[in-house]
Design a protein around this nucleic acid. Sequence first.
DNA 1: GTCTATAAAGTGATAGAC
DNA 2: GTCTATCACTTTATAGAC
Lengths: 204, 204
Amino acid sequence: MTTKDAPRTGRRGPYAKSREKRKTILDAAHAVFAAKGYLGGSLQDVADHAGMSQTSLLHHFPSKSDLLMAVLEWRDELSGSANPADVDEGLVDAVIRTAVYNEKIPGVIELYTVLCAESTTQGHPGRGYFTDRFERLRGSYSRQFSDLADRGRLRPGVDPEVAATSLVALWDGLQTQWLLAPDSVDVVKALRAYFDVILVPEGS
Amino acid sequence: MTTKDAPRTGRRGPYAKSREKRKTILDAAHAVFAAKGYLGGSLQDVADHAGMSQTSLLHHFPSKSDLLMAVLEWRDELSGSANPADVDEGLVDAVIRTAVYNEKIPGVIELYTVLCAESTTQGHPGRGYFTDRFERLRGSYSRQFSDLADRGRLRPGVDPEVAATSLVALWDGLQTQWLLAPDSVDVVKALRAYFDVILVPEGS
DNA sequence: GTCTATAAAGTGATAGAC
DNA sequence: GTCTATCACTTTATAGAC
C-alpha cells in the first residue's frame, strides 16, 4: 500500500473524500491511457473523464508521469485482490485462470499492451516499470518450470529459462493480436496448446 | 512499387532529385517513429533529421498520417529486397534467417514493435496496416504448417492455425522483451526451441 | 521546392481567488 | 480542494514570397 489509513482525527478521517476522488481519477486515467496511450492521452482527457478541471487533477497528482506510475501501481494492487491465486495452485492453472479472467477486462489488457510497447521509446516514464515487470516474470516462471522439470513434468530438452521467456512473450503477443482481431485469436486456446506441447502428462 | 519510373522528358527525369529527397525523408521518419513512436514523434523532429524545414516536409507528404503510411509501405519494399527468401526455402529456415537478420537492424524492430502496439489505440492511422499484416501472416504460416502436417513433420495434436497465431505472437513478444532487455533475451534461441517442440525431426 | 511567417489549436504546468 | 486565468511551449497545417 502507498497510503496508510486516514489518521483518527475525524469519524472517517478528513481524507476519506480525497481518497475516493483519487480513485475516480485513477479510474479515468486508466481508461484514457488504455484507449489512447500515455503520449496520445492528455490530462484534459483524464480530467473530463473524472468530471473535474485539469488543474484540479494536477492538485492530486503533481505531474502526468506521476499519474501514469500511480495508475500502473494501482492496477497491480487491484488485480492482486480481484483475481487471487490459490495457495497451492500450479503454474498452468494460474496462467489459464488469469487468461480466462483477462477476457473479461479488455481495458486492462489494452492498457498494458499499449503502454508496454510505448515504454520502449526514448525517455518514457513507464520504461523502468515494464523492465522490472518482465525481469520478475521471467524469474518467477523460470523457477516454476524448474520445479516442474524436477518432478519430470517438463518435456525433455525444454530449457526452463527459455520456456519462461517464451511463455511471457507468447502471452503478450497473443493479447496484441486479440486486441486487433478478437474474433480470429483465442488467447486461452493457444496458451493451453503451448503447455500441452512443452509439458509431459501427469504421472507418466 | 507505388511510383513508376520517371517519365522520359529529361535525361534522368525531372523527379530524380525529388525521389531522392523523398527517400531521405522516409529514412528520417523511420528513425523518429522508431525512437519515439508516431504519437511521440513530431513532424519537426522528422524535418530536423532530414535537414529541412517542417513546411518543406509537408510539401512532399500532405499530412503526418500519410507520412506514416509511406514509411510502413516503404519498409515492406526494402525488407523484401534486402532479405530475399530462397525459392524452395522452408518455413523454419525462413523464420530463423529473418530473425537472425533482424538482430542487425534493431531500428526496424523498434519501429514495428512501437507502432504495432500504438496502432491498437483509438483512431490510429496505422491500425488497418497492422490488422491486415497479422491476418496475412496467420494465413501464410497456417498454410505452411498444414503442408508440414501433410508430410508428417508436424507433431501430432498440433493445430496448424493455432501454431501460426502462436508463432507470430511468440516472435513479436520476444522482440518486445529483447528491446527492453537485449542481454537477457535471445529471440533466435527461443524461436528454435518452439520449432523443436512442435515439429517432428525429418524422416521419422 | 524551399523557405519565413503565421494560424489555430492543444499541451503540461503554475498562480492565485474563493 | 476546486476553480478561472494564464503562461510558455509545441503541435499540425496553411499562405505566400522567392
